[in-house]
Design a binder for these strands. Sequence first.
DNA 1: GTTCATATTTGTAATCATTACAAATATATA
DNA 2: TATATATTTGTAATGATTACAAATATGAAC
Lengths: 145, 145
Amino acid sequence: MNNIKNLIDDKGVKPTYHRIKILEFLQNNKNHPTADKIYEEIVKYIPTISKTTVYNTLKIFVEKEIIEELTITGNETHYELTEDTGPHHHFYCTQCKTIFDIEAECNQECSKKNDIDGNKVQSYQCYYKGICCNCLRKNNNEMNN
Amino acid sequence: MNNIKNLIDDKGVKPTYHRIKILEFLQNNKNHPTADKIYEEIVKYIPTISKTTVYNTLKIFVEKEIIEELTITGNETHYELTEDTGPHHHFYCTQCKTIFDIEAECNQECSKKNDIDGNKVQSYQCYYKGICCNCLRKNNNEMNN
DNA sequence: GTTCATATTTGTAATCATTACAAATATATA
DNA sequence: TATATATTTGTAATGATTACAAATATGAAC
Ligand SMILES: [Mn+2]
Ligand SMILES: [Mn+2]
Ligand SMILES: [Zn+2]
Ligand SMILES: [Zn+2]
């Protein structure tokens, strides 16, 4: 909880109660939540918080590179801590709408570049879309009924 | 124009006039247009076309894997032909909002997998976000004025 | 502690891409 | 031609995100 405060402070962002709670939530929920999901969970503990505050805070965190945004679904933006998470790929299941990490081989060269062909790189994302193994199994079971 | 017709036909989609024109446009415009951009250009030649038709058609094309969608910006979806375009990365300039191909090294292993950790892969995307070299140069010039 | 400037938060309204849906039109088949 | 089916159209709805101004909190100066 104190390292959270420092993480924010070090980037020149004032560590307010709301901001700390939002970042704490992202630290405890590594399942790439959306802004709405973050709001729905946090409003349980801070009933007066506004969804605008969540959006504002997430925007600041992204600018300061404290968190990263995943624009995979084309619908909602998902978020995750930049922190210790090394570069990794993602898998988006179009059936159960889950996003999870793919720990497998990640092209490290790509992910470390901050310049490519003279263009200044600020972030790098790789993802797969398809049907996750859970849904595959579920579909299979329904077939055999 | 006839190969376009075949490209659609072979996937079991009826090659209507509208669909052919939309696919033709994507073949002639390799700059990853949005649905709105496609509509704005095509309505010049087919004044009666509806934007819903563009969306419907794009959705069908994506399902049939005739085209691919790029969900990079978090705002609008961009489209490109699957066709001959080998797997390649993309660069999205957050300043001029352009998306262009990165021909550089692409992890071929990743892009060819149709199964990863038991999950069924249907598509694979990699992209960089940052400031393109044109905008970098422009920004630099403005600094020195 | 009061005053004042600034930063943060809130609530509501607007924006805008996309989708839902039903009516209209075209196409194919008998 | 009559009829069923597929496609297209126009409009309304949806839903995530942003704009904006009012309210509140914070912090320094006095
Ligand atoms: Mn992740
Ligand atoms: Mn491309
Ligand atoms: Zn799934
Ligand atoms: Zn640019």
